[in-house]
Design a protein around this nucleic acid. Structure first.
Length: 165
DNA sequence: GCCAACGTTGGC
DNA sequence: GCCAACGTTGGC
């Protein structure tokens, strides 16, 4: 039997890569590259599987918050930007035989009609345990409990079936 | 292994 | 821009 679907949160700075960039990408799909934290890497490489769902979160912007939902559509693979000397995410010690950084391919599923802001999330008692809301946390890839995921969808006015397409 | 210095994240 | 919190680096 297949493993249960897991849920995640992916942070991005919209000035660098916004959810709308993903929404407009070919097949609404991109490699989620540039993650340079080892704990986040482990979630990408070892935690995620095709079919998992992720909240996409905008940070470092006027109204930080959840802006969309994406699905993992490809298994973990080495992040190609680590091999590119011209790329800001270049990793001098990485080789194709021994990659350091990993990514998964994600596809936009739903673009929220409005931002579910960080302030709203904080105001929701049912979400008090979310990793995102813990003091000092700054991981850009985080696991999300299914109940929390469902609650955020509800705040966005979505029903569970809305993310199954 | 300890820890100070420095860099980064990210809300405000 | 400020600053808290965390991660990384490097001397010892």
């Amino acid at each position: 039997m297949a493993r249960a679907r897991r849920h995640w949160l992916l942070k991005t700075e919209p000035s660098t890569y916004a959810f709308d960039d993903l929404w407009r990408a070919p097949r609404r799909t991109t490699g989620w590259d540039g993650v340079r934290n080892h704990q986040a890497k482990l979630f990408l490489r070892d935690g995620m599987a095709v079919g998992d769902l992720a909240l996409v979160y905008h940070s470092s912007t006027e109204a930080p918050g959840v802006v969309g939902v994406a699905r993992v559509v490809g298994p973990a693979r080495p992040d190609p930007t680590q091999f590119d000397p011209q790329d800001p995410h270049h990793e001098p010690w990485a080789t194709p035989e021994a990659p350091v950084w990993w990514l998964v391919d994600v596809q936009a599923v739903v673009r929220l009609a409005r931002v579910v802001t960080l302030a709203e999330l904080r105001a929701e008692p049912a979400l008090a345990g979310m990793a995102l809301l813990q003091k000092g946390q700054r991981l850009s890839v985080q696991p999300v409990e299914p109940a929390h995921f469902a609650r955020v969808l509800a705040l966005a006015g979505l029903r569970p079936a809305d993310v199954e397409r």
